[in-house]
Design a protein around this nucleic acid. Sequence first.
DNA 1: CTTTTCTTTGACTATTGTTGACTATCTATT
DNA 2: AATAGATAGTCAACAATAGTCAAAGAAAAG
Lengths: 141, 141
Amino acid sequence: MKRSLADKIEQYLKVLIERSDDKQIEIQRSELAETFSCVPSQVTYVISTRFTEAEGYYTESRRGGKGFVRIRRYHLENGGASRKELVAFIDELLQDDALTTSQSDLLKHLISYSFKDIPPEYRRRLYKQFRKVVLDYVNLD
Amino acid sequence: MKRSLADKIEQYLKVLIERSDDKQIEIQRSELAETFSCVPSQVTYVISTRFTEAEGYYTESRRGGKGFVRIRRYHLENGGASRKELVAFIDELLQDDALTTSQSDLLKHLISYSFKDIPPEYRRRLYKQFRKVVLDYVNLD
DNA sequence: CTTTTCTTTGACTATTGTTGACTATCTATT
DNA sequence: AATAGATAGTCAACAATAGTCAAAGAAAAG
């Protein structure tokens, strides 16, 4: 299998991301270009073609002295993440006395009104994440 | 993560502010410049780019003998677009007995861990929205 | 072989950070 | 009140990054 330079850079970055604690890395564009003996814009090319949101990554950057490019991987989840399910889950926790009424009320309020102007795919992710974080919270003791 | 001098000064000041009783500090520009071995105008640069009103800070200063720069953190009416500010806001509500400890703990947990995988522009929106929704919730009675 | 798509490169642009010379304002002293 | 000294602010030049875009080259598809 013949791999292009772009492929190699992509691989390199993905390994770094997977090995990181928080699935996130920060690189310096010109430094990476140096490592692969290519022009800096090649790095930009790789990042913009292979680390797109559709592929489960998002990036941030800063120019100027000590500038950087940060790449973060998130998990694309397709499992049932809806408001309804999340509310039902919270009710379960309430039944189990894992949450108080005042907590579950607040939670439901948040769930119902906080995600209004967030695009659906992110909203699903938030429902999912909320579930995970709440569960994590009640298991803290 | 490599941090620029400006980043370090910003961090330093923010720690001082958060540790202060009244979320407010007074510094001497040239003294701080001395601490970081840089020119005084670097301090001005940091303050004007990272302690803006948009970011939730007010600054005042006085020239001449015993001059100073005062930086004060406040809470944005429709801002609060950062985790830190939102957590501070929750703490305020706790102080005012608008929220119970169990509620604020849960909230802070949610705020800290739920938005990790959301792109920054939506994350900011979520922080703002969260603030609004929590405020709305405590005003329900 | 031709066309299309992907890769590589480099010139130019945009943004952020650092420095220093010059200016403005305040306090203390005369 | 005038003046000197001590601060802080402004601004423009320069440095250090990253981004854009289009052209040229390479690889894949037809």
